[in-house]
């Protein structure tokens, strides 16, 4: 699953650690989500969307291939 978390985070000028603190998860978890190695749970995806003031489907995109 692709996502725009890194773009949104960098647009806000946040570090991975700062975003992790805001979401209540570790820096490594934010990094894994950004690189597509970890798909967050639905509650965490919703928390990410709320943090950036958007919706889950605007941030996360299913890979078609």
């Amino acid at each position: 699953m692709r996502n725009d978390v890194r773009t949104l985070r960098q647009r806000e000028g946040l570090s991975q650690a700062a975003l992790g603190t805001a979401l209540g998860v570790s820096r490594q978890t934010v990094n894994s989500i950004e690189t597509g190695r970890y798909d967050p749970s639905l509650p965490l995806a919703i928390a990410i969307a709320r943090h950036f003031g958007t919706t889950v489907e605007e941030i996360f995109h299913v890979d078609d291939n």
């Binding site: 979401l23 209540g24 998860v25 570790s26 967050p40 749970s41 509650p43 965490l44 928390a47």
Partner: peptide
């Protein structure tokens, strides 16, 4: 209400 399960 699953906040406690996802957070550190």
């Amino acid at each position: 209400s699953t906040t406690t399960s996802r957070t550190a």
